[in-house]
Amino acid sequence: MQFKLIINGKTLKGEITIEAVDAAEAEKFFKQYANDNGIDGEWTYDDATKTFTVTE
């Protein structure tokens, strides 16, 4: 399945899409990606669109 991350950071904005087995695997990848890029904010997930959003 495809999952999307929308980044609304103070210094980094954009979107990335990955293939993952389930939402838990996608969330783990996205949170590591955000951590690696210094993004720390509020997370939301929309199951209907398979979209995670992080907002700083």
Rank of each mutant, 00 (worst) to 15 (best):
F30R: 00
T49Q: 08
F30N: 00
Q2H: 12
E15W: 10
K10P: 03
G41R: 01
K31C: 02
A23R: 14
T11V: 09
V54R: 00
Q2M: 14
A34S: 10
A20K: 04
K28N: 10
F29R: 10
A48C: 06
N35R: 12
I16E: 04
K13A: 12
N37K: 13
Q32N: 10
D47G: 07
T49G: 09
I39W: 09
W43L: 08
I7E: 01
T11Q: 08
T44P: 00
F3W: 12
M1Y: 07
T44E: 11
I39C: 02
N35F: 13
A26F: 00
A24M: 08
E56I: 10
T51W: 06
T55M: 12
I18H: 08
K28P: 03
I7C: 02
D36R: 13
A26P: 01
F3Y: 15
Y33C: 02
A48S: 15
E27M: 10
T49E: 15
K31D: 02
L5I: 05
F3A: 01
N8Q: 08
G38Y: 11
N37W: 11
E15A: 10
I6M: 13
A26M: 01
Y45A: 02
G41C: 01
K31F: 07
F52P: 00
A26I: 01
I39G: 01
A24P: 05
D40Y: 13
I6A: 11
F3R: 00
I39H: 14
D36Q: 10
K28F: 05
T49D: 10
D47T: 13
Q32T: 08
I18K: 09
T51Q: 05
A34Q: 04
I18S: 05
D40A: 12
E27F: 14
E56G: 11
A26S: 05
D46T: 15
I18T: 13
A34V: 06
F29E: 05
E25Y: 11
D36L: 13
W43V: 04
G41P: 01
K10H: 04
T44Y: 11
F29P: 01
K50H: 11
I18P: 00
A23M: 13
V21M: 14
I39N: 03
N8S: 13
N37M: 14
D46S: 15
L5W: 04
T55P: 01
W43A: 01
T11S: 10
W43Q: 01
